[in-house]
Amino acid sequence: MASQGTKRSYEQMETDGERQNATEIRASVGKMIGGIGRFYIQMCTELKLSDYEGRLIQNSLTIERMVLSAFDERRNKYLEEHPSAGKDPKKTGGPIYRRVNGKWMRELILYDKEEIRRIWRQANNGDDATAGLTHMMIWHSNLNDATYQRTRALVRTGMDPRMCSLMQGSTLPRRSGAAGAAVKGVGTMVMELVRMIKRGINDRNFWRGENGRKTRIAYERMCNILKGKFQTAAQKAMMDQVRESRNPGNAEFEDLTFLARSALILRGSVAHKSCLPACVYGPAVASGYDFEREGYSLVGIDPFRLLQNSQVYSLIRPNENPAHKSQLVWMACHSAAFEDLRVLSFIKGTKVLPRGKLSTRGVQIASNENMETMESSTLELRSRYWAIRTRSGGNTNQQRASAGQISIQPTFSVQRNLPFDRTTIMAAFNGNTEGRTSDMRTEIIRMMESARPEDVSFQGRGVFELSDEKAASPIVPSFDMSNEGSYFFGDNAEEYDN
């Protein structure tokens, strides 16, 4: 783990906690998980779902989305002020799938948001429990990260689609708070800032007046979040320049895209947490497990152990491969979309394939898809080993990566060399080191050039047997250095459309 220093740990961010010791953190995270579980059980009762239907990941996603929508204050306010045809701002819903006479049927349900809020609060001892809501947002974000390569979004903001390893959390809503900021990748933060800068260039009043003052505060806050992700002084200094700019424009845009590229080699610290679907927490609570009393951590053995003992089902389209669908969801559960496939294969105990080789589309089923041909199958979400999630980018030494994705962002704290394609990355730096950030740029390029592919990161860190909950005997895996390590390699994943 990167030293926490003055930073709060993510469990504290996750639970809005002030400084807590490890036991208190485990208890408050457990409380959050228990609340999600209780809410899910109650919703299944309301909807009269069978046990099997309640364990269907598509039903879980609909129920999670309903509660997130019920608590989305800004959108609710907007919907009330701008009524649109056929949208009731006070209601929320989605597809629920039921097994009827041996076939899967889709039923569109509609609930009062007020009623959903009441059920959620009741499951969370009367609190709004925003930490639990954020947790579900991060699960949705991790699922998107594993399912889609955001080529269009990258290109629109002047970045290269091969930089997708920097895009963790790119679909997280803005209201996801400190826990959300911690899991956002460098590219995601750059993209958010670039969008602001572009608006400022096109709209003279963007930075002016009372609204402009708020915009400015948001801009500086985002700059500080991004600065905190960088691990070298030169990158941090460049972020200070971007933040202090009187009138952010093209120079800042250039600096930010430069920094994003540099992060492929001088990786930023991005938190990883295993956020599971509500249909995993519900049955665990129903079986009598007391998360608050037992304590829970999002970055240790607990999620692995929970998945070892969970039964989750998914709808499967006619030509999809259930094992591939399982891999997709497994990666999402562990926030591992940008991790090295060699490491993932070792931990999972079966070969993890790149996205383009998977015969599976996303987990969600569109409303126009034919239910007649839908089957369902068990998702295999178990693992051979477990490993500690990392909050750091690993040290800054790398190795060759593949054509589709030119770097990785480690999820697990496991000893290995970190793949990246130096030639491709360095070719993108057209040696432009003039301007006010020239000395920093020169320094950053120097550090990137001296990074050695064969150097090892996370020295001495290994994986653990599932029986080793105290992480007492690390097993340090050895990897084939020459092997392909990137998930979005030469990829044809669908595009994420909101």
Rank of each mutant, 00 (worst) to 15 (best):
A2P: 06
R8P: 10
S9M: 06
T15N: 11
E18H: 02
Q20G: 03
T23E: 00
V29W: 05
G35E: 13
I36D: 04
G37E: 12
I41G: 10
L47E: 14
Y52H: 04
N59R: 00
H82N: 10
A85T: 13
T92N: 14
K103I: 03
K103N: 15
M105S: 00
M105H: 01
L110M: 08
A129R: 09
T130R: 13
H135A: 15
N144D: 07
Y148G: 02
V155E: 03
T157R: 01
M163T: 14
L166Y: 04
Q168E: 06
S170E: 08
L172P: 11
G185N: 13
M191Q: 15
E192G: 13
K198V: 07
I201Y: 14
G212E: 11
K214A: 09
A218G: 08
Y219C: 10
N224I: 12
F230W: 07
T232A: 13
T232W: 08
A234R: 00
Q241N: 05
R243L: 02
N247R: 10
E252F: 05
D255V: 10
L256Y: 01
L259Q: 09
C279Q: 03
V280M: 13
R305E: 01
S310I: 03
Y313R: 08
S314F: 09
W330Q: 01
A336E: 06
E339I: 03
L344K: 11
S345G: 08
G349K: 04
L353Q: 15
R355D: 04
N370V: 01
E375S: 11
S376I: 04
L381G: 00
R391H: 06
R391A: 10
A403W: 00
A403V: 04
Q405P: 04
V414L: 14
V414N: 01
R416Y: 11
N417C: 15
P419A: 14
P419V: 12
F420I: 10
D421A: 14
A427S: 11
E443F: 08
I445C: 14
M448S: 02
A451W: 03
R452S: 07
P453V: 14
Q459K: 11
V463D: 11
D468R: 02
K470C: 06
N483R: 04
S486G: 03
S486Y: 14
F488Q: 05
G490V: 09
